[in-house]
Write a protein that binds this DNA or RNA. Structure first.
Length: 362
DNA sequence: GAGACGTGGAG
DNA sequence: TCTCCAAGTCT
């Protein structure tokens, strides 16, 4: 007997018809969503799904439109240099998404379009179980149920699942798959998926769910038991350590600043940065930090204040030293990975952590 | 399986 | 100020 038997897809937790009827009246009008009855473009569904990974609808709206204007189709994206894609993604976070998006575009353009089934989509870079199912359901009408945080919450409440996440995930996925046993869900897989998202985003919310308006009120075990606010349970999070860094803002007479390209993988991988020391838990003395300056022999002055930025797994506090390149200095070839950019351009291309640092210079 | 991986908004 | 969390993926 298996240690933790994966539950087989079973009878649906709740009927699809009331949810779809609710969706037809209350669906959100979102900038990245095809108009009612309109055929969604696979490219746009894919792009929006990747942007929406761990990112709010409000943040994605304007960035989706801007990205689409710059890279209108998968061929245009595939033809672009990776640095241009990274720059367009600046400020959105989780930069591996941008690298994978670009790699995925090249594969898709080469094969002449997106595959139409979840299993094939799943093999592409940056497309995991959720995104594969979302694209398959929304763009290709495949009878699958994408399980995101909304769906986890809705299903955990319908079933009154008390096991904390992520341990409960396999069971929640199996229960979500069960929805497709209902012919009404199979008839409209894309709408059914988006109905689940909208239900989770507007009624079955993490705090203060609005059960009185829920089309699935009668089917919800958590609501019957009065425990909806406590579900889904989650494993406790670890504390985030505080790390420190010292960075060096070098400007030339023309007002350009020195930037450095970070290594292709890892934290802020492939993004530009203001050169600095490593980030560590111990604070830095000036004498210790100076060897990390991008050029030796300059008169660095400390700018007042500290830039603070919270990453997922640590908090960062950065000090900024500034220096100006003498106008007469010969334009020495910059070291590998370094470039000078006008201040405004640098600001647009930098991730938020680095923009905070730049703000100290004003 | 657990940790790495960004950011901004809400309460 | 601080915690939570948002249409997750990769290793």
């Amino acid at each position: 007997m298996p240690a933790s038997p994966a539950p087989a897809a079973s009878a649906p937790l709740a009927p699809a018809a009331p949810l779809l009827a609710w969706y037809d009246r209350h669906r959100r009008l979102l900038p990245f969503r095809a108009p009612e009855g309109g055929r969604p473009e696979p490219y746009q569904v894919w792009l929006s799904e990747v942007m929406l990974q761990q990112t709010t609808v409000a943040a994605v709206g304007p960035r989706f439109a801007r990205f689409l204007a710059r890279f209108p189709d998968v061929e245009a994206l595939a033809a672009a240099p990776e640095a241009a894609v990274m720059e367009e993604w600046a400020g959105l976070g989780y930069y591996a998404r941008a690298r994978n998006l670009h790699a995925c575009a090249r594969i898709v353009a080469a094969r002449g379009g997106f595959p139409g089934e979840a299993a094939a989509l799943r093999k592409l870079p940056g497309i995991g179980a959720y995104t594969a199912a979302a694209i398959a359901a929304i763009a290709f009408d495949q009878p699958v149920v994408p399980v995101d945080g909304n769906v986890e919450r809705v299903v955990a409440r319908l079933a009154a699942e008390a096991t904390p996440l992520p341990a409960a995930k396999p069971r929640l996925v199996a229960l979500a798959e069960g929805f497709m046993a209902d012919a009404a869900a199979r008839a409209r897989p894309g709408d059914f998926a988006q109905a689940l998202f909208d239900l989770g985003a507007t009624l079955c919310t993490p705090r203060s769910p609005v059960c009185a308006l829920c089309p699935w009120r009668g089917a919800c075990a958590a609501q019957r038991q009065g425990v909806q606010e406590t579900l889904p349970r989650k494993a406790p999070k670890r504390a985030r350590p505080l790390r420190h860094g010292v960075h060096f803002l070098l400007a030339d007479a023309a007002g350009r600043v020195l930037l450095r390209r970070r290594p292709p993988r890892g934290l802020l991988g492939g993004m530009l940065e203001i050169p600095g020391t490593p980030w560590r838990e111990a604070t830095w003395e000036a004498a210790e930090a100076l060897p990390f300056a991008p050029l030796p022999g300059l008169a660095w002055r400390r700018l007042p204040g500290l830039a603070r930025h919270g990453f997922t797994h640590f908090e960062l506090e950065m000090a900024l030293l500034a220096a100006t390149l003498p106008p007469a200095a010969a334009p020495a070839p910059l070291p590998e990975g370094m470039e000078m950019r006008p201040l405004a351009e640098a600001e647009a291309a930098l991730p938020t952590a680095m923009r905070r640092l730049l703000a100290l210079a004003r």
